[in-house]
């Protein structure tokens, strides 16, 4: 299911694939790799107010591996055009990072990010992708079937700690710190779903396919301290 960047050229991606990388110990990151004007680009919510859209060859700190996508090409071409709308309507600094989610984060017509209604709202790299696909009738995960997982609390604490350290607006971080355990859509689950024909994936299936994908990722591209030093 996973294609390793070391064994295949990213230029073989014809329309869209979901890329995944381990960016720090136990921390995965997911992005959309897509072809536009005969160039392969990557669009991903890298961090708080940091939407990146760049040539795949320019990704600096890590290389995405990618999942062989099961969605037909025609709907994926609509995804590419929608990404163009989003990247054309946003400067890249509008989308807060948050595991609390946001109802209808994009104006579904303009692709513009709707400023958060509630403090603490925002997206993660995974929910950013889920929302884009959802806007076009492509539901990767059955979000209503997902459950809170106690081990995600450590991850939530890690994220709020990182946000504090990087001087993100206090009220935003405070809201995340106050929050209870939230449903989490993990990057590997979103990426794994893109390789499935029968969508949306239910929670249990998504969770097990996510675990399998992480195993594949660790086999080909385990996280190394070398990569951390380059950050």
């Amino acid at each position: 299911m996973l294609v390793c960047h070391k064994s295949a050229d990213v230029n073989c991606i014809q329309v869209v694939s979901l890329g995944i990388a381990e960016t720090s110990e136990g921390q995965r990151h997911v992005g959309i790799i897509y072809r536009k004007d005969n160039q392969v680009r990557v669009c991903h919510l890298a961090w708080h107010c940091k939407l990146i859209d760049e040539l795949a060859s320019e990704t600096a700190h890590f290389k995405f591996d990618w999942v062989r996508i099961a969605i037909p090409d025609a709907p994926l071409r609509a995804v590419v055009s929608f990404i163009e709308l989003i990247t054309g309507s946003n400067t890249g600094s509008e989308i807060p990072y948050s595991f609390l989610g946001q109802t209808q984060p994009f104006d579904r017509v303009t692709g513009k990010y709707n400023p958060s209604v509630h403090a603490g709202d925002g997206l993660t790299c995974a929910t950013f992708i889920l929302e884009i696909f959802k806007c076009l009738g492509l539901e990767l995960l059955d979000e209503s079937s997902f459950e809170e997982r106690p081990d995600d609390l450590d991850w939530q604490n890690k994220i709020t700690y990182w946000l504090r350290q990087r001087n993100v607006e206090g009220h935003h971080v405070a809201k995340l710190e106050e929050s209870n355990l939230a449903k989490r859509f993990r990057p590997e689950e979103v990426a794994a779903a893109s390789g499935e024909e029968n969508l949306p994936l239910q929670f249990t299936e998504a969770a097990s396919k996510g675990v399998a994908l992480v195993e594949e990722l660790h086999n080909c591209c385990p996280f190394t301290e070398d990569r951390a030093r380059h950050r």
Binding site: S81, F82, E84, L85, V109, T110
Partner: peptide, 14 residues
């Protein structure tokens, strides 16, 4: 359709 045509249709609808 070309990719640009899909994008342009989206812009008109938009």
């Amino acid at each position: 359709p070309k990719q640009d045509e899909i994008t342009d249709v989206f812009k008109y609808l938009n």
